[in-house]
Write a protein that binds this DNA or RNA. Structure first.
Lengths: 227, 227
DNA sequence: ATTTCCCTTAACCCTGCCTTAACCCCCTCC
DNA sequence: GGAGGGGGTTAAGGCAGGGTTAAGGGAAAT
């Protein structure tokens, strides 16, 4: 069963689309503005998303860009009445996968929706720092050609550090991304950092996790290794 | 560097496209008929393919269908002067991912090429991974020449994993595609994974289903098999 | 009606990760 | 010089998540 999201402020058009997709056995949620759409995307799993460009609260282009910035790469189809080349290019530039000009034939919409829903991001997403390479899609980390085995939490911490690299990340930030709301009381983070350091040291000497006193941590190149 | 293939019998148009893509830093091979194109696809790695519909030797639709039947899921963009709805639907039906009507703006072509090159088409009729081959039309799975008997659910799970291979798939995603909205309460998925693993192990040692702790599962090549 | 095959469920086991607490060091400030 | 705080190190224990197993029920097939 295909399940998709339509973000469109024209309620008549939206209803028509939802009905039509339903006939074709495509489950279609609907949001009437970009912000609502954004929230739905966070909480639900959709195979693809249709975005109207013109919308109150948050327009389609901005929403699309925001999604891509967050690393969400669900296929996006832009729906709009604007058919100039520049408008199209703007759409693709924002990270959309397809661009359909209103008015369109419902059958073409269905065909494109079905194609997009099956389409997968082909490439792996990596974070790299020195000889560390973190494959976000496989949740695995390699240091100099060899994969190392990290616990889920250690990996999350490393991910946060590598995303910010080489800038410092506060303890608060780390704790928030790892544990969210209810955090462990005590020095759990200390221990995780310690273990992470040990494992990194064993694997590579090009990188170190530096402590920024009373702030947090940062991952850096190891330059003091000149003995 | 993006590398793509253009299959087009109009040599003038072809030359224009190749030149233009070259400027945009896209390497573009050219075949002037379907058969030539087919051979090039077999021997080279392309990120996406542009197909003219009308061509001598083998037309674009047939070529596209042939590719999909062979389990090749490179994204395909149809280029044609035929702009009727039926023609478009025919194109999508043949397994293409996008459909652009001549004459088109070069910039739009470039945008669509770039988008497609980053994705994987989900249109293939076969999925293959190592010595596993899953026939989506017959819903049957072969491991090293011999078909094995999987329950419907096990097969769906394997399909999800193979589509994403070797990326990790979250539990949520698997559950969603298998059961949709009303999911079983308990550890049904665990049991299915367990059974699936057992059957895969019995059939081949080239592939394993790896657990990604607190995320989900991924199907991978079995490299530790060097005893 | 009977059989067969799945799918679900519940129960149990086990591994290894996470937390905790305790102790250490070093630096700074009193 | 001593106290206190921030950070590092260590080991132990609990526990949750994942793996394993078997039993029961329902649907399709015979």
């Amino acid at each position: 069963m295909i399940s998709v999201l339509l973000v469109e402020d024209d309620l008549d058009l939206a209803a028509t689309i939802v009905d039509y997709l339903d006939i074709e056995d495509i489950e279609c949620d609907h949001a009437s503005n970009g912000l609502m759409g954004f929230n739905l995307i966070q909480t639900n799993q959709y195979q693809m998303i249709m975005l109207d460009v013109n919308m109150p609260k948050m327009d389609g282009l901005t929403l699309c860009k925001t999604l891509r910035e967050q690393g969400i790469d669900i296929p996006v189809l832009m729906l709009t009445a604007r058919d100039s080349l520049d408008n199209k290019l703007e759409g693709f530039d924002a990270g959309s996968d397809d661009y359909l000009v209103k008015p369109f034939a419902m059958k073409e919409l269905v065909a494109r929706v079905q194609v997009l829903a099956k389409r997968k991001s082909g490439e792996a997403k990596y974070l790299t720092f020195a000889n560390l390479s973190l494959d976000l899609t496989q949740r695995s980390i390699m240091a100099a050609e060899q994969t190392l085995k990290l616990s889920p939490i250690a990996l999350t911490i490393l991910e946060v550090l590598m995303r910010a690299a080489p800038k410092a990340v506060t303890r608060i930030e780390i704790m928030k991304t790892v544990w969210g709301e209810d955090q462990p009381d005590s020095n759990s983070l200390k221990v995780h950092i310690y273990n992470l350091r040990k494992q990194l040291e064993a694997a590579t000497n090009q990188v170190k996790i530096e402590t920024i006193p009373s702030v947090g941590f940062a991952i850096k190149l190891n330059e003091g290794e000149l003995k």
